[in-house]
Design a protein around this nucleic acid. Structure first.
Length: 416
DNA sequence: TCTGGGGTCCTTTTGCCC
DNA sequence: TCTGGGGCAAAAGGACCC
């Protein structure tokens, strides 16, 4: 009800600017996971709510604005968040729910324009240049999207409208929660220059620190710094990039379909582990999960990467590129195991292990030398995985292979 | 205050070939 | 034979994002 009222309110002063030449929208859900949870827990609306794991090593995934008022924010360790805000209701995440809500909002976006570039589950860029004749001005389309997201998904979002992607992104952040900001083309530099450097997309803690050392605090400061100075301090690419952004120059276009580049899985142990057998068992699980996702999305990859995080949080990666791309859990596992054993660790205390497959290609475009010909390729991969697992591990190994089968669609015989 | 899990991109180092 | 270095791909690390 309050949301509807908010929408009927007149435009805020910053919404009044000229939106011609502003074809880029950035739409970002407000406190996404928490908002989704509140749909089924309406009695918690208006109270501090934190979504995050219950384990001692988990972090905050999302928090309502009432919780944020206590200093809670996402990525904060849960233990700390609960200390800061003991009265908060803590809800463990339900990723399936968020996936579904995400599909819903992305569908709304795609009904506006096919030029939708999702950045994550809860945000996307839209290029609406081609939709304006049909649906109205940028501001009208932004308002339409906000209304439809509330009506159809029961959560609020914020919208930034601008002539470029990164200004639209900054604008939506400043519109939060439940608002919309238009940055007119001619006002971009005036909008940017007073802002602190840290709000720029791509400037995190380290870069901000480097900029502070140069005495650069605002985006305007960056704009007035020679390119060579920036590049010396930040590197070639980052320096040039920030320099351009500080003058509002950003010619990146909204692209609908970026293919995946890697797929992986990793896990932090509840307690540090120094038993190699435990580590290897975990690597097997992660390899199976990763390979199942590869096959489910019809991908194969050539490079297998192992990630190990030690008790002191130092993290290393080791990788190996195969001659042929694979989507077979056994291959991923054996490669990761080889990389792990090559480390020659002597009971080091390990906090996390991960497996990732990089250099992805679509399965159907990769020539398959070993193919017997005739059979479906997906089916080949599934059988190969289950056969190899069974051959090496005996009957018990049927379980992981069965999980693989379940994740796939209806095809592929169930082996009992 | 003791730091998740999913990713992308960039930089530097290393090994190899010529 | 030794050294230098260009060019390249792979490997490793790290910053960053949500």
């Amino acid at each position: 009800v309050t949301r509807r009222q908010l929408q009927r309110n007149g435009p805020l002063p910053e919404q009044l600017g000229d939106d011609t030449g502003c074809p880029v929208l950035h739409v970002d859900m407000d406190a996404f996971y928490a908002s989704v949870e509140l749909r089924s827990r309406p009695e918690l609306v208006g109270t501090p709510v934190i979504v995050g794991g219950l384990g001692s090593r988990s972090v905050v995934l999302s928090a309502t604005y009432e919780a944020r008022a206590f200093g809670v924010h996402s990525a904060m360790p849960m233990m700390r968040a609960r200390r800061m805000c003991p009265q908060a209701t803590v809800i463990p995440p339900s990723h399936g729910l968020y996936d579904e809500a995400s599909r819903g909002v992305m569908e709304i976006f795609r009904s506006i324009t096919p030029l939708v570039e999702p950045l994550s589950l809860d945000e996307a860029f839209l290029d609406i240049a081609g939709a304006q004749r049909r649906l109205g001005t940028s501001r009208q389309i932004g308002a339409l999207i906000r209304a439809r997201v509330v009506d159809e998904q029961g959560i609020t979002c914020s919208v930034g409208v601008a002539s470029s992607k990164f200004v639209a992104k900054l604008a939506s952040a400043r519109a939060k929660p439940d608002g919309m900001i238009v940055v007119p083309r001619d006002d971009v530099v005036a909008f940017l220059h007073p802002l602190p450097v840290g709000v720029l997309w791509g400037v995190g803690d380290k870069t901000e620190e480097a900029l502070t050392r140069l005495g650069l605090r605002t985006i305007g400061d960056i704009a007035n710094t020679p390119l060579s100075t920036l590049q010396r301090a930040l590197g070639q690419a980052a320096g040039a990039h920030l320099s351009a952004l500080s003058w509002g120059r950003d010619d990146r276009s909204v692209v609908a379909h970026e293919p995946d580049k890697s797929i992986g899985a990793e896990e932090t142990f509840a307690r540090d582990v120094d038993d190699p057998a435990v580590v290897l068992r975990e690597l097997l699980r992660l390899a199976e999960r990763t390979a199942a996702r590869l096959r489910a999305t019809d991908h194969m990859g050539r490079t297998i990467a192992l990630k190990v995080r030690f008790a002191d949080f130092t993290t290393i990666t080791r990788s190996k590129t195969l001659r042929e791309p694979t989507d077979v859990a056994r291959v991923v596992y054996e490669t990761a195991r080889g990389l792990y054993e090559a480390l020659g660790l002597q009971r080091a205390r390990i906090r996390l292990v991960g497996v990732r497959v990089e250099g992805l290609v679509a399965s159907d475009t990769t020539p398959r030398q070993l193919s017997m010909g005739g059979g479906g390729e997906e089916w080949r991969a599934a059988e190969q995985a289950s056969d190899q697992a069974a051959a090496r591990f005996g009957a018990g190994a049927v379980r992981p292979a069965t999980l693989v089968e379940r994740d796939r669609k209806e095809d592929g015989p169930k082996r009992v």
